[in-house]
């Protein structure tokens, strides 16, 4: 593809003691696409995501954002580039309400002196949260009940909405539907498409092949710490994906 990549990983190496999680891994994301990252357990998906999200530094290799080399020392540096991550374990504060979670670390303060004293503009945050949910069709009506009282699907919707609200460029989702039922999964996938339609690229990690085929524009396959295949979703099928994941078929030019 001649198009400029949004994010490019080249030759990423990451070891945990004797475990070689990533052995020179490449990865590409183009603007405004949903790219699925698939691979068997231990392929290095979660490690690669943590590196792109700034949670862990790579031992070796380069990251390019908009073609420029970048280093991401911590999550806030990734956030500054417009990258947000939805973690597998949700990472919401269950005792706080959706608005507090959506604005966590980015609280809106009241205008004037009272805001300088640290007073929260709860009304503004609640209104913006409800607007974000409505805009994304997130299916969460209350911005004021504790998140812990809500269903798994609603919580995941809140996490995805938070990421979509703050990400200008890229949302990373680590198994966003792993803990959800069928109906709730479908709603989250719909949410992912809406995020993409707003011009934000999405990386989705998933083990669910029908889900990958339904939501993604492209698929990149990791195996044993390397990228072993790239597919355009419309031109592939489940058999080809599984063959690439298990090493039954190898694309020579992918690594």
């Amino acid at each position: 593809m001649a198009q400029q990549t949004l994010l490019q990983a080249r030759g990423i190496v990451k070891n945990f003691g004797h475990v070689r999680a990533l052995r020179g891994c490449d990865f590409d994301v183009y603007p405004g696409e949903v790219v699925a990252m698939i691979g068997d357990n231990g392929a290095g998906k979660s490690t690669l995501v943590k590196i792109v999200a700034g949670v862990q530094p790579p031992d070796n290799g380069e990251l390019y954002f908009d073609g420029e080399p970048v280093t991401l020392a911590d999550p806030t540096e990734a956030q500054a580039l417009g990258i947000e991550t939805v973690y597998q374990d949700l990472a919401l504060a269950p005792d706080l309400d959706p608005a507090a979670n959506l604005f966590l670390g980015r609280e809106v303060l009241k205008p004037g002196l009272i805001g300088k004293l640290g007073f929260l503009d709860t009304k503004a945050m609640t209104a913006k949260t409800l607007a974000a949910f409505k805009n994304l069709g997130a299916g969460v009506q209350s911005a004021t009940a504790p998140v812990a009282t809500m269903s798994g699907g609603q919580r995941q919707s809140i996490a995805v909405s938070r990421a979509a609200t703050w990400a200008d460029r890229l949302v990373i989702m680590d198994e966003p539907t792993a803990a959800l039922g069928v109906v709730q999964s479908r709603a989250v996938l719909e949410l992912i498409r809406r995020v993409r339609d707003q011009g934000i690229a999405v990386i989705i990690i998933s083990h669910n092949m029908p889900e990958v085929l339904s939501v993604s524009d492209r698929v990149e396959v990791l195996r044993l710490g390397r990228r072993v295949a790239q597919f355009v979703t419309a031109d592939t099928d489940m058999e080809a994906l599984v063959a690439a994941m298990t090493g039954a078929r190898v694309q020579e030019d992918a690594g």
Partner: peptide
């Protein structure tokens, strides 16, 4: 943009939005 109905995942725990702004 595709048009999707307001996906109603679960109505439990969903109090009305008006109450929040009263």
């Amino acid at each position: 943009m595709t048009q999707i109905p307001e996906t109603d995942l679960d109505t439990n725990g969903a109090t009305d939005a008006e109450g929040a702004q009263a």
